[in-house]
């Protein structure tokens, strides 16, 4: 089982600014963590800080299995951590399967062709997200939601221990969103650590095991969903509106009541 430790992670876009301050978390088993918070709370920046992209200034500790992620070679890191941004660019002139095969890049040399195994993994990833039928369709002829599924499949084809997803459910309809969160839950059961930012808790059913609430770049709560959501006052303060989050039934999915349930 992989173990992800984040300690005092601060992230900014310049050397003297911080969009995320002192975030810590430890995840020791496969799980789905929902990173929630209002617009501009630092959710996307937090994910970027974990991978310390160029142009991002981050400090603090990010360890995967006790190895500093930033000291890993890029290829080694790419074999262990995958990332899907909120609005990924869609290369034109590629079919869905070719786009998914781009996710196999860390597993082969820069100029080699895709092996039969790569194609098999890519097709399997497309099937997993419910987009197997799009395999030969060109991405520039697909809808936003279909492209989202293809990009998710590319992330899955990377075959990593940790997956960072920025708003994975955006542009997906109810059916595909439900399928996505179920898939993430299944992957977590196989030992994969998933961190997914989301604004739509109610779309994720019962999929996430942990929640981190960010506000103005600071982690206000991290833990079991019941614990985080039980404090209606905290959520109301953070979102600047009365808000309640409840289960639909004792083991059912989450329902959000903006403005309160009463």
């Amino acid at each position: 089982m992989p173990e992800l430790t984040i300690k005092d992670l601060s992230v900014g876009y310049t050397a003297d600014s911080t969009a995320v301050s002192g975030v810590s978390m430890k995840i020791t088993e496969g799980s789905v963590t929902a990173v929630i918070g209002p617009n501009g709370s630092g959710k996307s920046t937090f994910l970027k800080g974990i991978l310390s992209f160029p142009g991002i200034h981050s400090s603090g500790l990010v360890n995967l299995d006790s190895v500093d992620v930033r000291s890993m070679k890029r290829t080694e890191r790419a074999r262990r951590i995958a990332y899907l941004p909120q609005s990924p660019l869609v290369p034109a002139g590629l079919t869905a399967i070719e786009t998914v095969l781009l996710g196999r890049f860390p597993h082969r040399s820069a100029w080699s062709n895709d092996s039969g195994k790569d194609v098999e993994i890519a097709q399997e990833a497309l099937e997993m997200v419910g987009a197997g039928h799009l395999s030969q369709k060109f991405t520039d002829e697909m809808s936003g939601g279909e492209n989202r599924l293809v990009n998710l499949a590319a992330v899955l084809s990377q075959k990593t221990d940790v997956i960072l997803l920025d708003e994975p459910g955006s542009s997906l309809d109810y059916g595909h969103a439900a399928q996505l969160w179920k898939l993430l839950s299944d992957l977590a059961a196989k030992g994969i650590i998933i961190l997914a930012t989301t604004h739509r808790i109610e779309m994720s059913g019962n999929a996430f095991d942990k929640v981190m609430l960010l506000s103005e770049g600071i982690s206000l709560a991290f833990g079991e969903p019941e614990g985080v959501f039980s404090s209606g006052d905290l959520l109301s303060t953070v979102y600047n509106t009365p808000i309640e989050v409840k289960r639909s039934s004792p083991h059912g999915g989450w329902i959000v009541f903006p403005g309160g349930s009463s």
């Binding site: 991978l51 992209f53 996710g103 100029w111």
Partner: peptide, 26 residues
């Protein structure tokens, strides 16, 4: 250039995704 065609493909997906797939974009 011919040796880096795979890397060029990654640049089409944007800097962050290319980085996350192991490309030293700079």
């Amino acid at each position: 250039a011919l040796m880096k065609t795979g890397t060029l493909n990654q640049f089409l997906t944007g800097t962050e995704v290319a980085e996350s797939r192991g490309v030293n974009t700079v």
